[in-house]
Amino acid sequence: MLLTFDTATPLVTVALHDGDEVVRELVSELPMRHGEQLAPLVDTALREQGLVRQDLTAIGVGVGPGPFTGLRVGLVTARTLAYALEIPVYGVCTLDVLAVEAADSGAVAGPFAVATDARRKEVYLATYDADGVRLDGPVVDRPAELAAGLAAGLPVVGEGAVLYPEAFPDAVGPTRPSAGWLARVIAEERAELRDPEPLYLRRPDAVAPGTPKKVS
């Protein structure tokens, strides 16, 4: 049984995949409470399927890009569970999951981009072919700057397109990643499987202070 979850956006999403299909998927009700909600959602999904953690055979986790705090919760949980249960853990770029869902669901019929909210009035963006295979990115910048580099009329998937319609007027498809689609991506090897390390595109807000200046 494959357990997957993503904490790269304000909401936590958790899913179970039995090797053939997704058998359970849950999404948190409250945003920005990753640490409080991830473990209970995992336990609920397992309990509802009559499973325990020892029934898990692998773990998949979204590696972002996304805010530092949310990503850390998901990745630490994934690594800890995998270590304790002695099972493999796979990381997948969160934008790749949205891309595969958009391609397979018919939301796009040709090349497209995925844009997610990076806060600070910026977005994370990557481009994909019609099958959801990444061509370039991800990068982070202001929406107008990134939109200027896209072909006119290129469809854009993800919450970034919804938040900034003036930059991305051709918004389509899913807005936030689904752990169910993350499970499908891993089971079918539809995207690069990475080490469970955070995909940060910029430094966190909190940084260690530098060496104090000498007082003359």
Rank of each mutant, 00 (worst) to 15 (best):
L2I: 12
F5V: 13
F5P: 07
T7C: 14
A8I: 06
A8V: 09
V14D: 04
A15D: 07
L16D: 01
D20L: 06
E29R: 12
M32N: 15
H34N: 05
G35R: 08
E36S: 13
L38S: 03
A39S: 11
L46D: 00
E48C: 10
G50F: 00
V52A: 14
R53A: 05
R53K: 12
Q54F: 04
A58P: 00
F68W: 09
F68P: 01
T69Q: 00
L71S: 06
R72W: 09
V73C: 05
R79V: 04
T80M: 07
L85S: 08
E86H: 04
E86S: 02
V89F: 01
G91Q: 08
V97L: 07
V100H: 04
E101R: 02
A109D: 13
F112S: 09
V114A: 11
D117H: 03
R119P: 05
R119L: 11
R120H: 14
V123C: 11
Y124S: 11
A130L: 05
D131E: 15
G132D: 05
G132Q: 11
P138E: 14
P143A: 15
L146K: 01
L150H: 03
A151T: 12
A152E: 13
L154D: 02
V156H: 04
E159H: 02
L163Q: 07
P169C: 13
D170H: 10
D170C: 07
R176S: 08
P177Q: 10
S178E: 00
G180R: 00
L182P: 01
A187H: 08
E188A: 15
E189F: 00
P196T: 14
P198V: 15
L201D: 08
R202S: 15
R203M: 13
D205A: 15
A206P: 06
P212Y: 13
